[in-house]
C-alpha cells in the first residue's frame, strides 16, 4: 500500500483542490502551530547565542569553550535531538519541536553572532573606550546595534531553517502543526494532502520572507556605519 502512495504523485490541480476543500480552521491552526514552534525555537536559539557571544568576549579561554560547545551542538543530528526530546517530554508535548528547532538553529546563529562581533568596526571600540564605556555598555550600545545588519541577514536564514526543522520535529510527535499533518496525510494515503500541506509551508515561508524578513534586512542596513 505504501508503495502505491509513493508512486502516485498528484498534479498541481489535485493538490490545489485538496487545499481548497480543506477546513480553513484546520489549515490556520496547523500553520499557527508551526509558526509558533519556529518562532519560539528561533528565539530560544538567539537568546542562547547572544548570552554565549557575550561570554565569549570575557576571555580568550571563554571564547574557546563557546566555540567547542558550538561544534558539539552542531555535530548532533536533528533526528537525535527530535527523538531525545520526545523521550524526555513525551510524544504529545508541544516542547520537542521548539527544542529541536532551537538546537538546529543555534549553531549557525552563534556562528553568525561571533562573526558579527568580529566585524564590529574597530573604530567604534576605540570610541567606546575613549568615552569610558564598560563591557556591558560596549555590548549594549555598540556591539549589539552594530551587529544588527549582520544579524538581520542571519535572522532571514535562521527563521527559514527553524521553520523547516520544526516541521520535521512535528512529524515525529502528535502535537499538531504542518509536519504532523504531512505525516497524517501520508499515513491516510492521501498524496494530494502531503503535497498540499508541503505547499502551505512554502506559502508561509514566501509570505514571511516577502512581508517581514526582506523589510527587516532593509531597515537594518541603515544601521551600518558609513
Amino acid at each position: 500500500m505504501i508503495a502505491d502512495v509513493t508512486r502516485s504523485i498528484p498534479g498541481p490541480w489535485r493538490t490545489a483542490l485538496y487545499l481548497a476543500s480543506a477546513d480553513p480552521a484546520v489549515l490556520a491552526r496547523a500553520a499557527f502551530i508551526t509558526l509558533r514552534n519556529a518562532f519560539l525555537g528561533f528565539s530560544l536559539a538567539v537568546a542562547a547565542a547572544a548570552i554565549l557571544t557575550f561570554i565569549s568576549r570575557l576571555s580568550p579561554l571563554a571564547a574557546r569553550y563557546v566555540l567547542a560547545l558550538n561544534t558539539i551542538v552542531q555535530s548532533v543530528s536533528v533526528l537525535v535531538w527530535a527523538i531525545v526530546a520526545i523521550m524526555i517530554f513525551g510524544v504529545l508535548s508541544p516542547v520537542p519541536p521548539v527544542l529541536v528547532s532551537a538546537a538546529a538553529v543555534f549553531p549557525p546563529t552563534l556562528s553568525n553572532f561571533l562573526e558579527a562581533l568580529r566585524a564590529v568596526d574597530r573604530r567604534l571600540m576605540d570610541l567606546a573606550r575613549i568615552l569610558g564605556a564598560g563591557r556591558l555598555d560596549e555590548f549594549r550600545h555598540i556591539i549589539v546595534p552594530a551587529s544588527v545588519p549582520y544579524l538581520a541577514a542571519a535572522t532571514r536564514s535562521g527563521l527559514g531553517l527553524a521553520l523547516r526543522i520544526s516541521v520535521v520535529a512535528e512529524a515525529f510527535g502528535g502535537s499538531g502543526g504542518v509536519g504532523f499533518m504531512i505525516v497524517r496525510s501520508y499515513n491516510l494515503m492521501e498524496p494530494a494532502g502531503v503535497l498540499a500541506w508541503a505547499s502551505l509551508l512554502v506559502v508561509i515561508m514566501v509570505l514571511m520572507d516577502g512581508l517581514f524578513l526582506t523589510r527587516l534586512v532593509g531597515v537594518a542596513e541603515r544601521w551600518r556605519l558609513p
Partner: peptide
C-alpha cells in the same frame, strides 16, 4: 576627549 577623523556617530 577625542574627535576622530571620521565622525563615528552611531547610526542607530
Amino acid at each position: 576627549g577625542m574627535v576622530f577623523q571620521e565622525d563615528l556617530l552611531l547610526p542607530w
